Computed example of a mutant assay.
Amino acid sequence: MTELAGFTRRAAETRLPTRYGDFQAIGYADPTCAHEQVALVYGDITGRDPLTRVHSECLTGDVFGSTRCECGDQLSAAMRAIVAEGAGILIYLQGHEGRGIGLLAKLKAMRLQEDGLDTVDANVALGLPVDSRDYTVAAEILHDLGVPAIRLLSNNPRKLDSLRQHGICISEQVPLLVEPNDENLPYLKAKRERLDHYLPQLDNLS
């Protein structure tokens, strides 16, 4: 096991065959918050700026296939893109559910959205932060993997800024765009208009 510069430590490693391809799964433990994180590495990531997705945990979208967000579609698209690229990294971050507010609070916020609030105002109405995610552990994992720079699969400028503040060199932002549906269109519009996400596929939609 390897101790990182911060508190995160490498704790396990194994081959992980998936429907997209064979990844190397590297598990990390963060004793400061008891979360268990995983990085999926595909191919040889040395000597390049690997295509990288830092993906926030989303039980409703990633596991249950909820159409109220784009998270599950983004996760699948990212894994396909990494395999097509021939090499890359996917970091899956626990503790990021609902932009950091947790599963139960997220369900309450979703209920408020049914009453007309957007994803930002729903969090505020619950007395919770709009986005409390922290990317320190993601940066520590990337440092541990030894990549000098990455090409980040993300539409979120705040994620880029946070990773750069933690010493990660991002040579390119690669958009990760999915087709909207009737259920998630209001959510995506709020992310574009209020959280500055890059979502040009919404331009011609009412």
Rank of each mutant, 00 (worst) to 15 (best):
V120A: 05
H35N: 14
R53M: 06
L104M: 13
T8N: 06
Y20L: 07
E114V: 11
G27R: 02
T60Q: 04
V130A: 01
N155M: 06
C71W: 09
E13F: 00
S76G: 15
G27P: 05
P157A: 06
Q165A: 15
S162V: 00
L75R: 15
I91M: 05
E3Q: 15
E172M: 06
P50V: 07
E85G: 03
A78Y: 07
R133T: 05
G100F: 05
L199F: 04
G127L: 01
D131Q: 00
R19F: 04
E3S: 14
D62G: 06
K106L: 02
H166E: 07
D134G: 11
R9Q: 14
D62Y: 02
I82S: 06
A29N: 02
T2P: 05
T60F: 04
T2H: 13
L103S: 09
G21P: 13
V38W: 02
D118Q: 13
I170P: 11
I82G: 07
P129D: 03
I168W: 02
L104I: 14
L90Q: 09
T136E: 10
G61I: 06
M79P: 08
I170G: 04
S162L: 08
D30P: 00
E114T: 12
D30S: 11
R158E: 14
C33M: 05
Y198F: 15
A84Y: 01
K191S: 03
L160F: 06
H35R: 02
G65Q: 09
Q201H: 14
R19W: 03
A39R: 01
S66P: 09
V38L: 11
V137H: 09
L142A: 10
L90R: 02
G21N: 12
A105K: 13
L205Y: 08
T136D: 01
L90A: 13
V54L: 07
P129T: 07
G95M: 06
F64M: 15
D134E: 08
T136G: 11
R9D: 06
T32W: 12
D196E: 09
L93W: 02
E114F: 04
S132R: 03
Q94G: 10
T32R: 13
L4I: 12
T32H: 10
R151F: 02
V83E: 10
L112Y: 07
T60K: 03
L176T: 03
V83R: 05
Q94K: 14
E97D: 12
G127R: 07
A25Y: 00
H96A: 10
A105W: 03
E36P: 04
S206Y: 09
K189E: 12
L117C: 10
S171M: 00
L195E: 13
K189F: 15
C71Q: 08
A84K: 14
N181E: 09
E179N: 10
G47R: 08
R111E: 15
S171F: 03
E183F: 09
E140L: 04
